[in-house]
């Protein structure tokens, strides 16, 4: 295992008003790690993910990407990144896939995918288009490149969103409940793309409720409870009964939910 973790998060804390959502979370991800973050709703897992690329700014703690720490400063407006250029650059190394896709509605799928590479990374347009077409092929929606997001199904939109984040050639991709907004029959096509990425050794941090993905695809499972990491381990250990009693209760609950459905 390489010495410097690709992504290192140190002691993140975050409160919304009087409510402390994150109470000190640390995590290291090395190249090729696929880490599933599980937890009941309200346990802070989405907020944690959003603190990593500073869509929320943590009240305390550090984020270190490829050994480079995001510099922070505190002003009257609160705590935030000290250097916008550095933050923008580091954000291009951290892809993000959202629960509600968030494709840019006024652009076609192809335009969505080349937007970052062309306008943020300033790479040649022709090269970006060729890469985007290959990515669309890979996620299985090459025939939809000239469509607008409004004309795609949820599963297609999420696959387009994954392609959009891959186009930036990120070092790590953060997935924020990528299948939670999808109709059940569309979940599989998105999980399949994510499984392929994991097989290609993409470093991924996945907030999810998909127990199958956590158990079969990830190499580490983190269970969050009340703003803290309650327990973590390999999927075999965690699902083999070695997690905390809270985790055991959580997976029993998720299984009965699935059975009921």
């Amino acid at each position: 295992m390489s010495a410097t973790p690709r992504l290192s998060v140190r002691n993140i804390r975050k409160s919304f008003g009087a409510h402390e959502v994150l109470r000190g979370i640390s995590l290291d991800a090395h190249d090729g790690d696929v880490i599933s973050v599980l937890g009941a709703s309200g346990s802070g897992k989405s907020t944690f993910l959003r603190c990593i690329n500073m869509l929320e700014s943590a009240d305390d703690g550090d984020v270190i990407v490829s050994g480079e720490k995001i510099t922070m400063k505190t002003t009257s407006q609160g705590r935030g990144a000290a250097n916008r250029k550095q933050l923008d650059r580091i954000r291009t190394e951290l892809g993000m896939v959202f629960q509600s896709f968030n494709l840019w509605s006024h652009m076609t799928i192809l335009e969505n995918i080349i937007e970052g590479p062309v306008h943020v990374q300033k790479r040649p347009r022709a090269e970006c288009i060729a890469e985007a077409e290959a990515l669309l092929e890979k996620v299985g929606i090459a025939d939809r490149k000239d469509y607008y997001p409004a004309h795609l199904s949820g599963g297609q939109k999420q696959r387009a969103a994954i392609a959009r984040s891959l186009a930036m050639k990120p070092k790590v991709i953060l997935f924020d409940e990528p299948t939670s907004a999808l109709d059940p029959e569309l979940v599989g096509e998105v999980l399949r793309v994510m499984r392929d990425l994991a097989a290609e050794k993409m470093t991924m941090l996945v907030v999810t409720h998909e127990m199958g993905f956590a158990r079969n695809v990830s190499n580490r499972v983190i269970f969050m409870r009340d703003g803290l990491i309650d327990c973590q381990g390999t999927p075999d250990d965690m699902f083999g009964g070695q997690g905390s009693p809270y985790f055991q209760q959580f997976i029993r609950h998720m299984e009965t939910e699935n059975d009921a459905a």
Partner: peptide, 27 residues
């Protein structure tokens, strides 16, 4: 302008005038 689309742009490394010109203003 949907906040989620602005967040997606920020997450892709856009900010300031670029974000305004490419995402916020057209929408």
């Amino acid at each position: 302008v949907p906040p989620g689309e602005v967040e997606a742009a920020r997450a892709a490394g856009m900010s300031g005038f670029l974000l305004l010109r490419r995402i916020i203003a057209p929408i």
